[in-house]
Computed example of a mutant assay.
Amino acid sequence: MTQSDRFYDQLARVREFDQLTQTDRFTPLPQDWFVGVSDIVNSTGLVQAGQYKTVNMVGAAVISAMMNALDGAAFPFVFGGDGAGFAVPPQSEGVARDALARVANWAQAEFGIEMRVALVPVAGVRAAAQDVRVARFQVSDGVDYAMFDGGGMNWAEAEMKAGHYAIPPAAQGDLPDLTGLSCRWSAMPARNGTILSILVAPVAGTDDRVITRVYDNIVSLAKGLERGGHPAPATGPGTGWPPKGATLEAHATRGGGAIGKARRKVLFESFVAWLLIRTGLKVGGFDARRYARVVGENADFRKRDDGLKMTLDCDPATQAQIEEVLSAAKAKGYIDYGTATQDEAMMTCIVPSIMTDDHVHFIDGGAGGYTLAAARMKGRSV
Results as ranks from 00 to 15, higher is better:
residue 109 A to Q: 13
residue 242 P to E: 03
residue 17 F to A: 03
residue 97 R to W: 12
residue 104 A to P: 13
residue 371 T to S: 10
residue 50 G to I: 02
residue 79 F to T: 00
residue 356 T to Y: 09
residue 203 V to P: 00
residue 116 R to F: 12
residue 344 E to P: 01
residue 71 D to K: 15
residue 228 G to K: 06
residue 117 V to G: 09
residue 173 G to I: 10
residue 202 P to S: 03
residue 125 V to S: 10
residue 19 Q to D: 14
residue 273 A to D: 11
residue 95 V to K: 15
residue 58 V to R: 07
residue 143 V to H: 12
residue 177 D to C: 10
residue 308 L to R: 06
residue 30 P to I: 01
residue 99 A to R: 13
residue 4 S to W: 05
residue 173 G to M: 10
residue 84 A to Y: 09
residue 271 F to S: 03
residue 294 V to E: 10
residue 304 R to A: 05
residue 14 V to L: 04
residue 318 T to S: 06
residue 50 G to A: 05
residue 259 I to Y: 00
residue 85 G to E: 08
residue 320 A to R: 08
residue 351 V to H: 10
residue 94 G to H: 15
residue 171 A to L: 14
residue 162 A to V: 04
residue 179 T to G: 11
residue 193 G to P: 00
residue 127 A to G: 14
residue 343 D to C: 02
residue 103 V to T: 13
residue 278 R to P: 00
residue 201 A to N: 02
residue 179 T to Q: 13
residue 303 K to Y: 06
residue 320 A to T: 03
residue 110 E to M: 12
residue 374 A to G: 12
residue 197 S to G: 08
residue 53 K to V: 00
residue 165 Y to F: 15
residue 181 L to V: 02
residue 174 D to H: 14
residue 97 R to V: 07
residue 331 A to D: 11
residue 38 S to P: 04
residue 74 A to R: 10
residue 189 P to F: 02
residue 142 G to T: 11
residue 104 A to W: 14
residue 31 Q to R: 12
residue 359 H to Q: 10
residue 59 G to R: 03
residue 113 I to E: 03
residue 358 D to P: 08
residue 74 A to P: 14
residue 241 W to I: 00
residue 30 P to C: 02
residue 318 T to R: 08
residue 67 M to F: 15
residue 256 G to E: 07
residue 103 V to I: 15
residue 126 R to L: 08
residue 94 G to W: 12
